[in-house]
Amino acid sequence: MDRLRNTRLPDLPLHRLEVPLPHLLPFAIGTFDTIGPLSRAAFPHRHTFYEIVYVTGGSGSHVLDLVSRPVEPPQLCVITPGQVHHWAGAEELTGHVVLFNEDFLLPHADDASALRALAARPGHPAGEQAAPIAALLADMGGEYRELRPGYQNVLRACLHILIARASRTPGSTGSPSDAPAPACDRAAEVASAFGRLLCEPGGARWAVGWYARELGLSAGHFQTLVRRATGRSPGSLIRQQRTLEAKRLLSGTHMTIRQVSHQAGFADPAYFCRFFRKETGMSPGEFRNRAGRNHHDPRIESIAAHPDGP
């Protein structure tokens, strides 16, 4: 049963989560086959939701924000809202697909930061976590299908454990805490909220003042808290995200440079070209040509999915 819906943006599809009855949760789990053909989409697209994929078989590559990694089962892939991804040359993909919205993470708010850290790479080998992850997903699938009393709470608890297991896979940097952050850790709380807002698909704003107002802070206090938590200014993180959004549009759509400029929030295409060259060392046109030929060019991958962001 198809649980994904394709909404067209200018040349870049946006997939939204639709959960069929009797489920009323912002959550779904299944296989590549039961989730539907969009779970194997070979064209660049983005989501409004989180996706965790546990690949148990098949071949090809997973491309996430311009970075490509061969499919090497068993392998875990995490995609967060706003990221652009697709499966390249994929054949006979098998495994589990878990889909959920931000609301499903509310009992464990720190899990969102762990997922963003995991999504800094297009794939993680399961390693010694393979058997526990497989057993956990099988249990989650049973709870989802059988609708036993209290299954919603079981699914939320299992998802929290799954994210913790994923954070133990080789090369992972995600590390959800065992307990909520202290109430006094305001800087980490603000930086996490800023990170979520910054990555929202189609909802990005490019002014520090907008984010400060959205979070109920003065611009100065907002800048102080974000720098304390991340070591970077909000402006530098916005520039990074803005450049990444431009790269996504240049590599994943047929939009003109002027259209990309407008979509990335630049009123003047000439200024956009100067900004992009300063951030990447390439003109938008050169980047598009290189991205179309080789996803492994280090200059193409240089800004894709930084794990040290908010």
Rank of each mutant, 00 (worst) to 15 (best):
G235F: 01
T173S: 12
S261R: 07
E72V: 15
R277D: 04
A264R: 11
G150F: 09
I303G: 08
P307N: 10
P44E: 03
V78G: 03
D139H: 14
H124E: 06
E51I: 04
L12N: 03
S251N: 05
R46I: 00
R299D: 09
R205F: 06
I161E: 05
T256L: 07
L225I: 03
L197P: 08
G141Y: 00
A246P: 13
Q223A: 15
G202T: 14
T80H: 06
D297K: 14
E143H: 02
S175Q: 14
R299A: 15
G82D: 08
A120P: 12
A112L: 08
L136S: 13
L64Y: 09
P74V: 12
N289F: 04
F32N: 04
R248Y: 02
A126C: 12
A28M: 03
L162W: 12
N101E: 15
R242K: 11
G309A: 02
R293I: 06
P122T: 06
E51T: 07
G252D: 05
R168P: 01
Q152F: 04
C184M: 07
W87F: 15
E214T: 15
P125C: 11
H85A: 13
V55S: 12
Q263T: 02
S59G: 12
Y271N: 12
L12H: 02
E189Q: 15
L25V: 06
G195K: 06
I257M: 11
P73R: 09
T7F: 11
V190Y: 01
G30F: 03
V190S: 04
Y50K: 08
C273Q: 15
L93F: 11
G36E: 01
P107H: 10
T80N: 09
V63S: 05
H96R: 14
E72Y: 00
S59L: 00
R145N: 02
L38E: 15
A305H: 10
A134E: 13
S177H: 03
L217P: 00
G95N: 12
L198S: 09
H108Q: 07
L4I: 09
A304K: 06
A135W: 07
R274D: 12
S218K: 01
F222Q: 04
G292M: 05
V190Q: 01
N294D: 04
A166E: 00
P37Q: 10
I52C: 07
M255I: 05
R290Y: 04
V84C: 07
R288P: 07
V154D: 01
A42E: 11
S233G: 00
S39P: 14
R16D: 11
A304S: 15
D11G: 13
Q223W: 00
S218H: 06
R148Y: 02
L147S: 05
P70G: 12
E102T: 12
A131Y: 00
A267T: 14
L17P: 13
A207G: 01
P307A: 13
F272K: 11
T80V: 15
L25M: 14
G216F: 08
H47A: 02
L12G: 05
T230K: 10
